[in-house]
Simulated scan of single mutants.
Amino acid sequence: MNELARRVVVALIGAPIALGFIWIGDAALTTLLGGMAAIGAWEFYRLARDSGAAPMAPLGIVLSALIPIAVHAHYLGVARMPIALVPLVAVATLGASIWLRGVEGRPLASTSSTIFGAIYTGGTLSFAYALRYHNYAVGDMAGALVVIFPLVLTWASDIGAYFSGRAIGGRKLMPSVSPGKTIAGAIGAVITTIGVAYALVHLLLIPKAQLAFTPVGLVIFAVLISVAAQIGDLAESLLKREAGVKDSGTLFPGHGGVLDRLDSLFFVLPTAYVLYDLLLIPAPGGR
């Protein structure tokens, strides 16, 4: 089975599962996000070690998995998370390095990579939960679609880049980071994302969630989501190049590991959250 076929099989299996967890939301979505965050953090810390750092991996993995749980508790009103908790965790991690790393264990690099790994995985993935219960999204249908919309746009961007890049070829986008990506692929990704966004808004978001964008807002949203997705892909490739590995893991055949599969979403999810606040409007004739 070639690489494209493996990708298709994994997507056909994984996509419905992910969409199901998004639809259910609450503890089910938290469990999915926490699990993916923990595995992603484990992969990240392995890359960090291969790059010469010495992250406190067990601590970082626990922190990464706890972030979606903390967000879930915050939205339930069980435990309000004060903003001061963020610097407190950072300095506590530095404090832990006194015993876990010491002077010879490069405590600055160790602490920095540990904290960044947790934010990069658990912190960014937690925005999927925040999107699911975004204040614009009233009801399960609207909440699920608010998450699914940027997810599908990310897939559209990836597909558009893949096929336009192979069909047109031409000048490489950033050969030192990702040799296979072309400028034509990047442009094709943006165009594909705009087209899919327009279709989804009119077929699903407006009639099912009573949410919309202005015409200009829709184009801005689609373009920035595609750009975020492509930067996320390149950023993870950059980490792998430094570590000297092809894939972050082997969990998904044809896709690599969690970081390989979710690299774009680490950038897309927080970007979508900000853009929704700026650009999303009630659909005309809706609530």
Rank of each mutant, 00 (worst) to 15 (best):
H134K: 05
I24W: 07
R106N: 14
A11Y: 02
G217P: 11
A73L: 15
L151P: 05
Q210E: 11
R287V: 09
H74V: 01
V8R: 12
P150T: 07
V71M: 03
A5H: 12
G34H: 00
L275V: 11
L19A: 15
I39F: 15
L4R: 14
G139F: 00
V227L: 14
A57Q: 11
A128Y: 03
A28E: 13
H72M: 12
Y75H: 15
S248H: 12
E43V: 02
H202Y: 10
L63V: 02
A48E: 11
G20Y: 10
I67V: 14
T182G: 06
G35P: 08
T214A: 01
A243G: 04
S157V: 13
G256K: 06
A118P: 02
A54T: 15
R241I: 06
V138K: 12
A235D: 01
L59R: 01
L63I: 08
Y133F: 14
K172Y: 05
A235Y: 07
G169A: 12
A15W: 13
T192S: 15
H202Q: 10
A212R: 00
T93Y: 01
A48G: 10
L4F: 14
G188C: 03
A28G: 02
R287C: 00
R46L: 14
A79M: 15
V268F: 01
A283K: 00
V103P: 07
I83E: 15
T154M: 15
G257K: 10
D158E: 07
Y276P: 04
L279R: 08
L131E: 00
L33A: 13
I168D: 07
L108E: 10
G249Q: 05
W155V: 14
A79C: 09
A229T: 02
A90H: 05
Y75S: 13
A229I: 02
L29E: 03
G249M: 07
P270V: 03
V223S: 06
R241Q: 09
A57Y: 03
P215Y: 01
V219E: 05
G185V: 09
G25V: 05
E242N: 14
R261Q: 09
G20D: 13
